[in-house]
Each structure stands twice: as structure tokens, then as C-alpha cells.
């Protein structure tokens, strides 16, 4: 059996993280999490996830900053990022996340997108 793929969930609402974690683990993924972009970078470097789901609107702009840091990092710039946003049509102007989801998320669609991003 191949090793489980790991997903880093970043969201400033702990209960949001918890729900997503349970759902993704039920679907065969390993998860790790951070409640802000600053901690997100630390977890990213420690856990080396295969994919990141990122709430882009977090206090002090740490969501967007996290994304910029990740895309600048040679090691992680190819890690797919799925942006989760509370505002419709809010995309990152300078970069291109793998996908953008608007809250409330359609879980099945999210799962399908994650599978596609991680190659099945």
C-alpha cells in the first residue's frame, strides 16, 4: 500500500480545521494543520505536505503572505494550493492557486479536486 498523501489545512477557525481534518482523514489522507499563516510556514517545513488548503482571509493578512512565501520557496513552489475564500471572486492577483473554493465548500467537489491534484 502506497504511503498516505499528506494535506496541510490552514484556517483561523479551529472548528473549521477540525471538520475538514475528519473529512479528509475519512477519505484516506493524512492531515496536519495551522491556525495562521505564520505557523503554517513552520508546519509546512516540518511536515512537507503534498497539498495545502488555505483560508486566504486570515487576520494580519497571513494567508496571502503564506501563499507568497510558499511560491517563492524552491522546495515548495510546486506544492498545489487550494484556496478557500469567504468572498466570491477573490483571487490572488499575482499567482495561480490550483483551485479556488468559496465557503461554504462543496465537500465532494473539494475531494475530487484534491484527488486530481495529487494524481488520483
Amino acid at each position: 500500500m502506497p504511503p498516505k498523501k499528506k494535506i496541510l489545512i490552514i484556517d483561523d477557525e479551529p472548528e473549521m480545521v477540525e471538520g475538514l481534518q475528519v473529512f479528509l482523514e475519512d477519505n484516506g489522507y493524512e492531515t496536519c494543520s495551522a491556525f495562521n499563516g505564520k505557523d503554517g510556514i513552520t508546519v509546512l517545513q516540518k511536515e512537507r505536505p503534498d497539498l495545502v488548503t488555505l483560508d486566504i482571509q486570515m487576520p494580519e493578512d497571513t494567508g496571502a503572505r503564506f501563499y507568497r512565501n510558499l511560491t517563492k520557496d524552491k522546495e515548495f513552489k510546486d506544492t498545489p494550493v487550494i484556496v478557500i475564500s469567504g468572498l466570491p471572486g477573490r483571487h490572488l492577483s499575482t499567482s495561480h492557486p490550483y483551485a479556488v473554493f468559496e465557503k461554504p465548500i462543496d465537500k465532494e467537489k473539494l475531494l475530487a479536486t484534491i484527488r486530481q491534484a495529487l494524481g488520483g
Partner: peptide
């Protein structure tokens, strides 16, 4: 939307 999302997670659980 954010709160509904959290609730959705709770219901899933």
C-alpha cells in the same frame, strides 16, 4: 458562510 461551513463540518462528523 464561514459559520455554515463550520456547521457543515459538525454535521458531517
Amino acid at each position: 458562510k464561514g459559520l455554515l461551513n463550520i456547521m457543515d463540518g459538525g454535521i458531517y462528523m
